[in-house]
Design a protein around this nucleic acid. Structure first.
Lengths: 120, 120
DNA sequence: TCGATGTATCGATAATCGTCGATATATCGA
DNA sequence: TCGATATATCGACGATTATCGATACATCGA
C-alpha cells in the first residue's frame, strides 16, 4: 500500500463530506413550512387539540372565545390560518360554522418529522 | 357561548357542547410552539434533513452555504434557532462545529402532532 | 321585514423574523 | 506571533405576524 501521496493534505484539514439534500428537498421544505408555521402558535395548537377532543371532532368558533380568552376576530384569524394550511375545514350549519381537523394533513406533518421513519 | 337559555331552549338553538382542553393544554402549547416555530422555515427544515442524511449524522456549518445558497451569518442564525429549540446540538472540533439533530426532540414533536396516537 | 347572533374582513399597531454586510471571536498551521 | 479559516454577534432593513376595535356579511326567529 502506498503511504499517502493522494495529495499533501493533512487528515484534519477538512471538516466533513459534502452535504446533499435528505428526505426533504427545497420544494418539499417550501411546501411543509407553511403547515408547520400554522401549528407554531400556542393558540392554534390549542384549537387543534380542542377540536380533536371535542365530542364529534367538531366545534363552532363561538365556543372558543371563553377557553382561549381571545377576541372573536383573533380567533377567526387563527381559524383562517389553519384553514389555509389545510389543517382544518369549516362547514356552515345555520348561523354557525363547525370546524374539524383534517387529520390526514396533520398525520402527514407528523410523519415528515419522524426521523426514524425518514431513515428507514 | 350558548345562544339560548338553559330552560326554554330550542333543540337547534345552540351550536355545540362546551369545549375543553384536549391533549395539549395552555402550558404544553406554549412549550411546543417554539419547537414548531424553529421547524417552520424551509431553510431550517433542509438543515435538519441534511444533517439526518449526512454520513455520520453530523456536519459543520461551512458545508451548508453552498447547498442552501445563503450567507454565513444567515446560516449561523438558523443553526442558533435550532439549537435554542433543542433540536440540534453543536460540538466544536477544532476550527469547525459539528452539528447533529437531537432526534429525541424531533420525535417528541412528531409524536405530539400525531392525532391517532393522541386519541388512543 | 327587522333585530339578534355567529362569522369574516378591514385598518392599525406593536412585535417578531429572515436576511445581509461588517465585525468580533476561536482555532489552526506556519 | 501572524495570517487564514470557521463561527458567532451586531446593527439595520423590509416583510410578516398577532392582536384588537370597528364594521360588514350571513343566517335565524319573530
Amino acid at each position: 500500500m502506498y503511504a499517502g501521496r493522494v495529495k499533501t493534505i493533512q487528515i484534519d484539514d477538512f471538516c466533513c463530506t459534502p452535504l446533499h439534500d435528505g428526505e426533504i428537498d427545497a420544494d418539499r421544505a417550501n411546501a411543509m413550512a407553511p403547515m408547520l408555521a400554522a401549528l407554531a402558535d400556542p393558540v392554534r395548537l390549542r384549537i387543534v387539540s380542542m377540536l380533536l377532543a371535542a365530542p364529534e371532532g367538531t366545534s363552532c368558533g363561538c365556543e372558543m372565545e371563553g377557553p382561549l380568552g381571545l377576541s372573536q376576530p383573533t380567533i377567526s384569524h387563527h381559524l383562517k390560518v389553519l384553514r389555509e394550511a389545510g389543517l382544518v375545514e369549516g362547514e356552515r350549519r345555520g348561523r354557525w360554522v363547525h370546524y374539524r381537523v383534517v387529520t390526514e394533513r396533520l398525520e402527514d406533518v407528523a410523519e415528515a418529522l419522524s426521523p426514524v421513519r425518514a431513515l428507514v
